[in-house]
Amino acid sequence: MALTISRRALFGVAVAATAAALPSRAEARPRVVAEPDAVGLLYDSTRCIGCGGCVAACKESNGVPWDGEPTELDCTTRNVVKTRNLRQPSAAGASTAFVKRQCMHCVDPSCVSACMLGALHKQGNSKRVPGEPKGTGIVVWDPDLCLGCRYCEIACAFSIPKFEWLAANPRIVKCELCRHRADPTHDGPLSVANPACAEVCPAEAVVFGRRADLLAEAWRRISAEPGRYEPRVYGESDGGGTQSLYLAAAGVSFQDLGLPDMPSESPASLSESVSHAPYLHGLTPIALYAGAAAIIRRNRRRAEDESAHHGEDSK
């Protein structure tokens, strides 16, 4: 007896589980594409001379005092240039390569998907701050909506957002593409942001501009000197695409530069379609609730009837 009912219980659980799992991949969320005027950075590892000028300029323009050459991003370092040891030497025989790391300004950012109240959001999408420029795609942080939950740090595949661990009122710190240096007297990209790192780079290894233009420039460089470059622009579609784009020297894998190997579906899209699809826009919870309430009521009424009967019998 006990066993049969257990089996029925199991069956119920299995059915519910399957029902929850089935729609999860069926209703993928539409792919987010870069906005036409999205801006970003192009970093060319082959041109970088590792001078660190952009690191100093970044700190200065963000009002952070210089306390020695940083080796990693942290809550006082939004930009770092690392020397990476290569597992495979480059085609030109180099065993190391430079890489600049800062926020990728993802086309479909994990951090934005993760953030509960939209503290991290694409500029222009804030529900709290009206009048932000639209269409730049810059991922910015709003101190008033941030709970300091640090889910953004967990979510970002590039491990970009940093937290002020020793502050009583900690902030999330990351590159916001120097939007505070925007120059409204200019037209075009400079009117929304003006990255200090790109401005100071003596080698044109860091270039700021519209993502579409940067992508064209990257491919122009590759086709002009095919022997020099790895024939691929990292960020064109990696992780759903990023607005910070990377070029590597021929024979150098982007993973050796420390950039993760990501499919073209963004983690945000995967996460949201799996997590939200079973809800069918709120229909599932309502149906489950109504069903549960009906069953519980019915069961209770039956139990009451039964005990009423027993009551009569015993009289």
């Binding site: 939209g118 996460s271 949201e272």
Partner: peptide, 20 residues
């Protein structure tokens, strides 16, 4: 880190419904 901002959670229009 910033629990004092939690009052925003009481305002559903501010919710990021994409956030798990």
């Amino acid at each position: 880190g910033r629990p004092w901002n939690m009052y925003w959670l009481a305002m559903p229009p501010m919710w990021n419904l994409s956030s798990v």
